[in-house]
Amino acid sequence: MDVFHTTSRKRETYEVRIEASLLWECALGIAAITNTRLIDTFEKPKESWDKLMRSLSEPLIGDLKYAEKNNTWKSLLLLLHQKEFRDLSEFIMFLDGLEDKRLRFICIPYIGMKFQELRTHASEGDESSRNRLKKQTEDNPFFPDYIEFICTTNVHDLRNHLKSVMTGWYKEVIIPHKETLSQILERDKQSKEKMSGNLKSEALVEWATGGITYLPEPRVHTVLLIPQSIYRPWNVEGDVEGVKVFYYPVANESIYPDDKDMPSYFLVQKHKALGDEARLRMVKLLKGSDRTLQEITNELNMGKSTVHHHLKILRSARLVETLDGKYRLKENAVQSLSNELMQYLAED
Rank of each mutant, 00 (worst) to 15 (best):
D2P: 14
T6G: 14
S8Q: 14
R11F: 08
R11E: 11
E12D: 12
E15C: 03
E15F: 06
V16F: 02
V16W: 00
E19L: 05
A20K: 04
A20R: 07
S21R: 01
E25C: 04
E25M: 02
L28G: 01
N35E: 11
T36Y: 04
I39G: 02
D40R: 02
E43R: 01
K44C: 09
K44A: 11
P45N: 06
K51Q: 13
L52I: 03
R54C: 09
L56A: 02
L56P: 00
L56C: 03
S57M: 08
L60W: 05
I61T: 14
L64F: 09
K65A: 12
N71T: 15
T72R: 01
S75L: 00
L77D: 04
L78R: 07
L79M: 09
L79C: 10
H81M: 10
E84S: 15
E84A: 15
F85K: 08
D87T: 05
D87L: 04
L88T: 09
E90C: 07
F91S: 01
I92P: 12
M93D: 15
F94A: 08
L95I: 04
G97F: 10
K101C: 11
I106K: 01
I108T: 00
Y110S: 01
L118S: 06
E124S: 03
G125H: 08
E127K: 08
E127N: 10
S128P: 15
S129A: 06
K134L: 07
K135Y: 03
Q136S: 12
F143N: 01
D145T: 12
I147S: 11
I147V: 14
I147R: 06
F149T: 03
H156W: 03
R159F: 04
N160H: 12
N160C: 09
L162M: 13
L162Q: 10
V165R: 05
M166F: 04
T167F: 01
K171Q: 09
L181S: 10
I184Q: 06
D188K: 00
E193N: 14
E193F: 12
M195A: 10
S196T: 11
L199N: 00
W207Q: 03
W207G: 00
I212R: 10
Y214H: 08
L215G: 09
P216C: 09
P218H: 07
P218F: 06
R219I: 11
V220K: 01
H221R: 06
S229T: 13
S229L: 10
N235R: 07
N235W: 05
G238P: 07
G242C: 04
K244D: 06
V245Q: 13
Y247P: 04
P249Q: 13
N252C: 09
E253A: 14
I255Q: 15
P263M: 11
H271P: 14
D276N: 06
D276L: 06
D276V: 07
A278W: 15
K287P: 11
T292M: 09
Q294V: 05
I296R: 00
I296E: 00
N298I: 02
H308T: 13
H308N: 12
H309Y: 11
H310W: 08
L311C: 07
S316N: 13
A317G: 01
R318D: 10
L319R: 00
L319I: 04
V320A: 08
L323H: 15
D324F: 11
K326T: 10
R328K: 12
E331S: 12
A333C: 12
A333S: 14
V334G: 00
Q335I: 15
S336H: 11
A346G: 07
E347C: 12
